[in-house]
Write a protein that binds this DNA or RNA. Structure first.
Length: 281
DNA sequence: CGGGGCTCCTGTGCGC
DNA sequence: TGCGCACAGGAGCCCC
């Protein structure tokens, strides 16, 4: 599910495809994911594509921004005008573009088209004045991001201030921005910390290890183009590669890469959690 | 503030 | 081979 590395990879491509292009028309086929009736606000030149945690913003010259959360199955697919440039779409683009899961179509100048697909319809697109992005209900409560404003000092403070299970804390967007289930699992494995351990019981050494591990797995995810587990694809319709390098996520029954014990799966607050019972204490 | 449970949705994958 | 159903999950929301 798109987390910081996946959304950043989407952002990088959208920036390349969309900045200084003009949206000529928007077709909203299914409206719950969109502030219906406000689509006219997005007709015009795109000046910037930004990311806030797992949320993207497309900023328009007219002073409005489109905030987009793709959740687990949302996809932003760009099709350029030149047929020869088109690679076959990943089969994760269920139904194709446009297809039965295409909810919004952005017609661009120079023949480009941006599609918003989402087969589970959990994603959303919201409208906000660009100068008010920081006040938007989602952005406002977003915690500091690893590889961004989150530093070790701040991280220690956040971790030691609650007795919640450490994995839940890592995934709480209001505490730490951008980390979801995959990278929380992998970071905890890399740091040799049990996902259920109360945050305030982590030693200083463990906190330091975890901080470094979070940065490391996120960077690896970024480098590999994100994890195409479930439905993630980049705007050019291609799969990421990080799923080939999962440390522990999705590896129930496999052998721990570090100690050879068997990886176990449990649920923490309804989320699949993978860990090595031997080396994650 | 925390935590449990429910909700939204539909493709997937299981059991029979 | 096919049917039916439980399951998955980010984040909001309600309740205790």
């Amino acid at each position: 599910m798109p987390e910081l590395p996946e959304v950043e990879n989407i952002r990088l491509q959208l920036e390349k495809y969309l900045v200084n292009h003009v949206v000529k028309n928007i077709d909203v086929r299914w409206g719950k994911s969109f502030a219906r009736g406000k689509e006219k606000l997005f007709e015009g030149r795109i000046i910037k594509v930004r990311r806030f945690g797992k949320v993207l913003s497309m900023d328009f010259a007219n002073g409005h921004s489109a905030l987009i959360h793709v959740k687990m199955t949302g996809q932003l697919i760009y099709q350029g005008p030149n047929k020869k440039d088109k690679k076959p779409l990943s089969k994760k683009v269920v139904g194709g573009v446009p297809g039965k899961h295409t909810h919004v179509i952005f017609q661009l100048d120079r023949g480009g088209i941006l599609y918003f697909n989402d087969y589970r319809k959990f994603g959303w697109i919201d409208v906000v004045r660009s100068e008010n992005i920081a006040k938007h209900k989602f952005i406002k409560k977003l915690g500091p991001e690893p590889l961004g404003k989150l530093n070790i000092r701040l991280f220690e403070k956040i971790v030691s201030s609650t007795s919640r299970q450490i994995k839940l804390l890592l995934m709480d967007q209001s505490k730490i921005g951008g980390v979801g289930n995959i990278y929380a699992n992998d970071a905890l494995w890399l740091a040799k910390i049990n996902p259920k351990k109360p945050a305030d019981k982590l030693s200083v050494k463990e906190i330091e290890r975890l901080f470094v591990s979070i940065e490391k797995v996120l960077k690896e995810g970024l480098k590999r183009g994100g994890a195409s587990e479930l439905a993630f694809v980049t705007p050019d319709g291609q799969d990421g590669k990080y799923q080939k390098y999962f440390l522990v996520y999705g590896r129930e029954g496999d052998t721990c890469q570090r100690c050879k014990a068997k990886i176990k799966k449990l649920k923490i607050s309804g989320r699949g959690t993978y860990y090595c019972p031997n080396c994650q204490k």
